[in-house]
């Protein structure tokens, strides 16, 4: 199986805090890798390193996309996006003044670098629109297409954020706490969406998540982080019964 992403011995210290302390993992093509852990375990720092928001102090990240192995350590997000690695954010990071459909159009146009033309963005670019409507349908926001993003609910904005990432046609999708702050029904929507992105769209996905149930439902492999290190790694069923993990979570969740 092709390993689309490989990370070796990633380290990031903030002063004396070892946020990420020697983490290695691989992401297989077409699989979902879940990263869990209590607050302050270093999950978000790890995702920030992978998505190019911060540079690791040491360690390497390689991507295997289109049959080439490339060292992508420290690449900034736009460059990663062009290569095929896109991220959705914990706090929805969308274009608040634009309608839902225009948000998606903007991402498609940006990816295609099709912006120096005098055709209208609002219906004048047929292939862009075709793609935009299909993404909205996939995500389930078709009904809301005309609403400005600022009028969406929190959950809908998170969906739109994922739609923006999808519009970049990534090989690898990084999801940062996709269900944080959502209701139970909305969580189910996200779980379903992640499964479909894997099965129907063939994405390779890393999901950082607080909610263990969500991770166990969608992941092929789970990494449990604690104090910057990997505490356990393996199939969800194995992780569920791992005594170290149980004590970590039973201890935390009382």
């Amino acid at each position: 199986m092709n390993r689309v992403l490989e990370a070796y011995e990633l380290r990031k210290y903030f002063g004396s805090v070892r946020a990420v302390d020697g983490v290695s993992f691989t992401l297989n093509e077409g699989e979902v890798l879940g990263i869990v852990g209590p607050n302050g375990a270093g999950k978000t720092t790890l995702l920030n390193i992978i998505s190019g928001v911060i540079r690791p102090d040491s360690g390497k990240i390689y991507a295997n996309i289109d049959g080439k192995k490339i060292d992508i350590t420290g690449w900034p997000p736009p460059r990663l996006a062009r290569l095929g690695i896109a991220r959705a954010f914990q706090v929805p990071n969308v274009f608040t003044g634009l309608s839902v459909i225009d948000n998606v159009r903007a991402a498609i146009i940006g990816r295609r670098r099709q912006y120096y033309t005098l055709k209208s963005y609002d219906g004048g670019l047929e292939t862009v629109d075709e793609e935009a409507w299909s993404i909205l349908g996939f995500i389930g926001l078709t009904d809301k297409y005309a609403l400005p993003a600022q009028e969406l609910s929190h959950g809908e904005r998170k969906l739109l954020d994922i739609a923006l990432a999808l519009a970049l046609k990534p090989t690898i999708l990084l999801l940062d706490e996709p269900t944080a702050g959502l209701s139970a029904t909305e969580k189910d929507l996200i779980v379903d969406l992640v499964k479909r992105m894997k099965k129907e769209a063939g994405k390779s996905i890393i999901i950082v998540e607080h909610d263990l149930d969500v991770v166990f439902q969608v992941s092929d492999e789970v990494i449990v982080m604690y104090e910057g290190r990997i505490l356990a790694k393996g199939h969800p069923d194995i992780i569920k019964t791992d005594p170290k993990v149980r004590s970590l979570y039973l201890g935390e969740e009382k």
Binding site: A81, R87, T96, A106, G110, Y115, T117, L118
Partner: peptide
């Protein structure tokens, strides 16, 4: 045109505009 759409993405969220 798409240029105008690009302007508006920059208005709303320059960081994400760069990323996309």
């Amino acid at each position: 045109s798409p240029i105008g759409l690009a302007f508006q993405t920059i208005r709303d969220n320059p960081g994400r505009a760069e990323t996309i």
